[in-house]
Design a protein around this nucleic acid. Structure first.
Lengths: 339, 339
DNA sequence: CTGTTAGCGCGTTCAC
DNA sequence: GTGAACGCGCTAACAG
């Protein structure tokens, strides 16, 4: 049925170990024998069983990747880039999509990764307990979200600086009533919204603008949430003339809400997002760009490096560059204000 | 170091085989012994090695999923839904992202899936040779794209009917010069663009509208491609008053091109897309909606069913429903035409 | 340079 | 109901 190493060995007139050595490019095999074995193997369509070889060697040549929502642009893009790096290095990717709390819980208690992967890349922020579970796997760990964590190599951006760019841009345009759509819900140990909010508060304070809690709303990191949040902000006694959305998807929701309220962007209200989503350009959205694919690729490279040199440093923190991308959703406030 | 089945056996005072039976819920173990073993196992944090168990049993409890671009909304959404179905059934997902021709070629020649998966879900259209390679794995196969193929269960939509809806909508609005942005490049054995184009031609013909080759352009299934294609169409001697884009992403590119040309949508030009991308609503894009996540989930279910009853029918073809979603990018042609 | 001998950790007969 | 023996397909250590 399925051809095994002994089939190849028999056909080539050598022992199984020689076949193993030959096919994996290990030394100790004469060139002619190796060539002959290679020929026989391809002719027979032989591929070593990963189960058997990892059982024997302890190495799986597989990387576990943990994601909250593969369907979302950000995570899909990070995953795409990381997968390319892994597969180019000969590693397979075992994907775990942990959107719901139940699947997430089950994953971390049963830990199906145990004995199955050589390393783990997490695109979600594990809490203390979950981090400990991952560390217990005894393999290199990396993450593309959140702050530095013991045992993890983390690739990220300076959330604070990014948000400062965005809000300062609005201040410089002359806005004084600046709202924010945050994305705090969901993850508990998610430092990103906190850092971006702090930056918002700081820039306002620096500009001598009093903070108005009525100008903050939660957008849940989704388009719909952003729309709801914007609608909320517009219901304030004195609505904002500009809004900083902590993600482009929420900013897009805000744009929709504004259109439904017959408000013009940027004439009546300015909007700035965060991410530089692939469609932000289409919408003309001013935003803070971050290298999303770049972060996935870099995290993958960090893991591969740790796999190559197990004695190297186990963790690190890489900051990727960000930049403000000016497009068409921001402008000075209208002299007569919104409405 | 890592706890094995014999560790559990010793700690529970039984043999390894009893532990194996107990933990997998097989009959032949007294309830009390089973309970005790379960307790010991969880206390020790034992998880059976997948490598060892699949080597012994032949089952891997892993599904291979082959995707062209995980980062694209369509594929990410299909994958997300499929993964949920698989993981709920206790299967892991091995992901292969085959965007570039080289990785694709390498994948199909080396076939790293061999002996590693119990089934394969393909989100790309394999050509004859690639199909044969997948069939040689000897496991159930499914696909969410393209037409019926021997050996595969296919879940899809009626591309022809969908495109007819879209184009007929434009005709009914009174348009006579209707352009099309197709997405033919890339995949060779990709029947989708062909079917959608045929529908376009048929509807025009039915309406007594002569086909003008200058009104067709290739958009490569991307936003940028759509923008280029629209720009091309606008350069025609007599540009279209309406455009059918074979995907929402190309339609979005078209919208951008139109905005750059200072043309109003739908006043000057109407646009209809295909897919109902998550952001189409934000853009107010009229489009043909298809159940993207639904197709992924359904294909996954088909595979699981084949895994459960190996003697059942090996292949099938499921058609999912489509519907035209009317939004704000289509309207009757302006009396004075575009420009 | 090559073949032989042992396991890797589990599932699966068979006995008991 | 339970345990002992064997083998899944491969790699690693040891001979030669």
């Amino acid at each position: 049925m399925t051809v095994s190493i002994t089939d190849v060995a028999r056909a080539a007139g050598v022992s199984a170990s020689t076949v193993s050595r030959a096919l994996r490019g290990r030394p100790g095999v004469s060139d002619e024998v190796r060539a002959q074995i290679t020929a026989v193997a391809t002719q027979l369509g032989y591929t070593a069983s990963r189960s058997a070889s990892s059982l024997a060697s302890g190495r799986t040549f597989t990387i576990g990747v943990v994601v909250p929502y593969v369907g979302r642009w950000f995570f899909g893009t990070v995953l795409d880039a990381a997968e390319h790096v892994f597969s180019a290095a000969g590693y397979d990717v075992l994907l775990y999509n942990l959107g719901s709390p139940e699947t997430r819980k089950r994953f971390f208690t049963r830990l199906p990764l145990r004995k199955r992967v050589d390393a783990v890349l997490s695109l979600l922020i594990p809490d203390e307990e979950e981090s400990a579970a991952l560390r217990s796997l005894g393999v290199p760990l990396a993450s593309t979200v959140g702050g530095a964590r013991p045992g993890f190599s983390v690739v990220g951006i300076d959330d604070r600086a990014g948000a400062e760019h965005a809000v300062r841009h609005l201040v410089n345009l002359g806005h004084r009533r600046i709202g924010m759509i945050s994305g705090s819900s969901g993850e508990q140990h998610w430092t990103t919204p906190v850092a971006r909010r702090q930056a918002y508060l700081d820039v306002l304070s620096d500009a001598g603008i009093a903070h108005d809690p009525a100008l903050e709303a939660d957008g849940d990191y989704t388009v719909e949430g952003g729309e709801r949040a914007m609608t909320e902000l517009l219901a304030a006694t004195r609505p904002p003339t500009a809004v900083f959305a902590q993600s482009d998807e929420m900013a897009m929701g805000a744009l929709r809400a504004l259109r439904r309220h017959r408000l013009r962007v940027p004439d009546d209200v300015s909007v700035v997002g965060f991410d530089d989503h692939e469609l932000s350009d289409v919408l003309g959205l001013t935003t803070v760009a971050q290298p999303v694919a770049g972060q996935g690729a870099e995290a993958a490279r960090l893991l591969l490096r740790q796999l190559d040199e197990p004695d190297g440093e186990r963790a690190g923190h890489v900051q990727m560059p960000i930049r403000l991308v000016l497009r068409e959703t921001t402008a000075p406030p209208s002299p007569r204000g919104p409405q």
